[in-house]
């Protein structure tokens, strides 16, 4: 009985914790962040390109997703991006779009 009560309070804490971290990190999905890490070689840290490749930081979400889908289908031709786009799913496009849109 005592144990159960403790268990419940632990569970309550866990729920509270997950709620708070959920709120605090809504814009930092770690899986998306980790995945976006690979884009930095060409597009800069967090999408802040310092070279000739486009800046992704702060890019409009819908625009990002449309471009990626067009790269994937071949509707938009590019040198590299048609290959990379084919490697990701639509769900991953959305995750990446969220991540880059949130970069200031």
């Amino acid at each position: 009985m005592k144990i159960n009560k403790r268990l419940i309070s632990v569970m309550g804490c866990a729920v509270l914790l997950s709620l708070t971290t959920g709120c605090a990190t809504r814009t930092v999905d770690k899986h998306a962040r980790n995945m976006a890490g690979s884009c930095a070689a060409c597009h800069g840290t967090n999408g802040h390109s310092v070279g000739g490749a486009p800046v992704l930081a702060g890019l409009d979400k819908t625009y990002f997703i449309t471009q990626m889908k067009d790269f994937k289908s071949g509707a938009r031709q590019a040198t590299i991006m048609n290959k990379h786009a084919k490697g990701y799913s639509d769900e991953e496009f959305a995750l990446l779009a969220d991540f880059f849109a949130a970069q200031k």
Binding site: C42, H43, G44, V50, G51, G52, A53
Partner: peptide, 21 residues
Amino acid sequence: SEAEGAYAASWLQNIMSDVLL
């Protein structure tokens, strides 16, 4: 292509910046 040559130069700038800056 020359376009890829230019992207290669950009790649070098961005990756060195990503690693060190």
